Amino acid sequence: MTQRARLQWNGPRVIAQLRAAEVRGVQLATEHVLERSRDRVPIEEGTLERSGVASVDDEGDQVTGAVSYDTRYAVRQHEDMTLHHDQGRTAKYLELPLLEEADQVQALIAAQIRRALR
């Protein structure tokens, strides 16, 4: 008795779906870090806080996420530990949330990839 099986390989489609999931995950992760950093960014008029942006670069073999603030004084506010800020607002307003939320960032990306593998 002969049994036959037919297999259809969907490798390129699966790889494309995984890449899209990776991009979604990185976007969600960068938005999460941006949200957490906005809770700490020094605020006087709100210009620095409003300048925050989460972005994703999907070039080549890597997906890269970035969170940035775009004012002429953003770097100084982030790096100068001698500046005084309102309660709950700090220097390192981007670095600290990124470090504190590292597990959550990984979980957001992993969840999107797991969803694509279903």
Rank of each mutant, 00 (worst) to 15 (best):
Gly65His: 07
Arg50Gln: 09
Arg24Leu: 11
Gln17Cys: 09
Gln3Val: 11
Val63Glu: 04
Ala5Cys: 02
Gln106Thr: 05
Arg118Asn: 11
Ala111Val: 09
Gly52Asp: 07
Val26Ser: 08
Glu59Tyr: 11
Ala91Met: 04
Thr82Tyr: 04
Ala110Met: 14
Leu99Glu: 09
Ala54Thr: 08
Arg40Pro: 13
Met81Thr: 10
Asp80Thr: 12
Val41Tyr: 08
Ala54Pro: 15
Tyr69Ile: 01
Ala111Leu: 06
Gly88Cys: 00
Arg40Cys: 06
Gln8Asp: 14
Tyr69Met: 01
His32Cys: 00
Gln77Lys: 07
Ala21Cys: 08
Tyr69Gln: 00
Asn10Cys: 07
Gly25Gln: 10
Glu44Met: 08
Leu98Lys: 05
His84Ala: 11
Glu44Pro: 04
Gln87Ser: 13
Gln3Thr: 10
Ile113Glu: 09
Gly88Ala: 00
Val75Gly: 13
Arg72Trp: 08
Ala110Ser: 15
Gln87Thr: 15
Ile109Glu: 00
Ala107Asp: 05
Val33Met: 01
Val53Ala: 09
Leu28Lys: 12
Glu45His: 01
Ala91Trp: 15
Met81Glu: 14
Arg114Tyr: 05
Glu35Tyr: 10
Ile43Pro: 00
Arg36His: 14
Val105Leu: 08
Val75Ala: 14
Asp80Gln: 07
Val56Asn: 04
Glu22Met: 07
Leu83Gln: 10
Ala21Pro: 03
Ser68Gly: 09
Trp9Ala: 15
Pro97Tyr: 06
Pro42His: 05
Pro12Met: 08
Ser37Glu: 04
Gln8Lys: 12
Ala20Gln: 12
Ala74Arg: 07
Arg115Gly: 05
Tyr93Glu: 10
Leu94His: 11
Ala54His: 03
Ala102Phe: 03
Glu44Arg: 12
Gly52Pro: 12
Glu45Met: 06
Gly88Gln: 00
Ile15Ala: 14
Leu108Gln: 06
Thr47Cys: 01
Ala102Asn: 12
Leu96Ile: 07
Met1Gly: 06
Val33Ser: 05
Asp58Thr: 15
Glu95Val: 10
Glu49Asn: 09
Ala91Gly: 02
Leu28Glu: 13
Gln87Phe: 11
Asn10Met: 11
Ala74Pro: 15
Ala91His: 13
Ile43His: 04
Glu45Lys: 10
Ile43Ser: 03
Glu49Ile: 01
Arg89Asp: 09
Val67Thr: 08
Val53Tyr: 13
Asp86Leu: 07
Leu99Cys: 08
Leu98Ser: 04
Ala116His: 06
Arg24Tyr: 01
Gln112Asp: 15
Arg6Leu: 00
Leu28Ala: 15
Arg24Thr: 11
Asp61Phe: 13
Trp9Pro: 02
Glu35Trp: 14
Arg115Cys: 02
Glu100Phe: 05
Ala107Trp: 01
Glu22Ser: 11
Ala21Ile: 11
Ser51Leu: 14
Ser55Met: 12
Glu45Val: 03
Val14Gly: 03
Glu59Phe: 06
Ala20Cys: 09
Ser55Arg: 10
Asp57Glu: 10
Leu94Glu: 05
Arg76Ser: 09
Arg6Gln: 00
Arg24Lys: 10
Tyr73Asn: 07
